[in-house]
Nucleic acid binder design. Sequence first.
DNA 1: CTCATTTGGGTACAGCGTACTCAGTGGCTG
DNA 2: CAGCCACTGAGTACGCTGTACCCAAATGAG
Lengths: 268, 268
Amino acid sequence: MREAYPEAMTKSGPAAAADGTTTGSGDIARSLELLWGTGERPSRGPRPGLTLDRIVATAVDVADAEGLAALSMRRLAAELGTGTMSLYRYVPGKGELLDLMLDRVQGEPLAADASQVPDDWRRAIDEMARTYRDNLRAHPWLLKINQARTVLGPSALRGMELALTGLKDMGLDGPELIGVIITVNSYVEGFVRTESHATEAARETGLSHEAFWENQRPYLERAMLSGAYPRIAALPHDAFGDGFDHFAFGLGRLVDGFEVLVRERARK
Amino acid sequence: MREAYPEAMTKSGPAAAADGTTTGSGDIARSLELLWGTGERPSRGPRPGLTLDRIVATAVDVADAEGLAALSMRRLAAELGTGTMSLYRYVPGKGELLDLMLDRVQGEPLAADASQVPDDWRRAIDEMARTYRDNLRAHPWLLKINQARTVLGPSALRGMELALTGLKDMGLDGPELIGVIITVNSYVEGFVRTESHATEAARETGLSHEAFWENQRPYLERAMLSGAYPRIAALPHDAFGDGFDHFAFGLGRLVDGFEVLVRERARK
DNA sequence: CTCATTTGGGTACAGCGTACTCAGTGGCTG
DNA sequence: CAGCCACTGAGTACGCTGTACCCAAATGAG
């Protein structure tokens, strides 16, 4: 860490993370240093007025409160009471900042230790899914950033370890265990994504859900009367009501499906 | 449609769709007109040099080929050989353009008519999921735009109608049927989202998956040796290999889970 | 004390969506 | 057939974004 930014950093321009929501900027080593690094200060020069921790925490607060779109480097600097470019002394770019926000937020809801994971794998999956769901609800911006190149920080590894602990009695092999985790996570992410898109749209447009659908009603009714959509028209009125816990429904089916496999494995 | 843009349009500024990925801009009526409208030309004035259809088709092409980030109004205009602001004669804003792209692309993979939907609901769900997956793979930008306020265009309604047709023999009630559709869609969206994030990251950084993980290896190995992650360390090496069809695994479990419910309903 | 080194932050640039504005076109009316 | 005016096309400009580049102030080692 002699030089401030390694070679690769200097050639990353606006093109590197075109939409500004891709984590990292190709400089994995730098992100890893920030995540796992000891953060020792150099001996010379004035002492830093900010800390990486404070920057990341503030960034998370802004994103939670007003969405990822509101989190600009200028805005973040203003929130911290410093100049915009000062942030770049602590973070190579916005991509790496997102990496750090990710790892910080993913670590929050994890059980203190493995002994708190339920012994029953059904309950473990249920709890894992609901915990993940609640976390995504608390930080909807998580679903907007590309995690594919997120370095495996301590939180990510701990989450995986705890998940595997909960599934230990299923009697499945390695790829299947990973498959269970991927499936549950995919379902939860997909579900919450739709959900948070709705609340985000309501906030941005100032138009409630009910008002929105009321606006569509005349077009819908015209479409229904056309006779082209008989099965939609035949649905009972409560089909789209909110008196039904769709999340629990889907999760319950998923766990049922896992159980079929587990029983099959146990029989042989 | 006497006035060019209704009242609400004029007060939508950059604040309306802050991140540029929210469909619509609060003016639902305008989007609905564009989707369902007849598109009659006014009697006076020069005839338009562009068509809405050509604009939307070109926009889809650009987004498919280079990602949603590459789709700017300037870029789109250049592609069409016109001035940037000319586009705003046809589309109120980028949000509505996304709406139109959405409906166009969602309509592509739909079966020609209901008679092509499999009679067996298991096969119908399987086909629905794979069709949706393939469509999301072909147009990964679908997962980046907020569909919550997407108006129900003809394609969306047809997709719902066909889905309900495939589930007709499950013997479930209204909310449950919607629950099945939501669950399958959530799973597929979550799965493809992770998948396409990976390919997008590889394209943007020019770094392959293998190279990326190879970079992380030393940090991972150090973490494994720490003993803090025994269950991850105990996983067989093929757990993360690509010799396992994770999509089919998750979808199979899901269908199994639905079957448990269907059998339970049939017994009573 | 001197000076290499580090931090803070101002300025500048390319790119974005789009509001505003005006020139030119062409069908309807007199 | 002339003239009007609704309409289309498009240039210019504004505020926003991330960040490259640069210089002044601060600090500890020699």
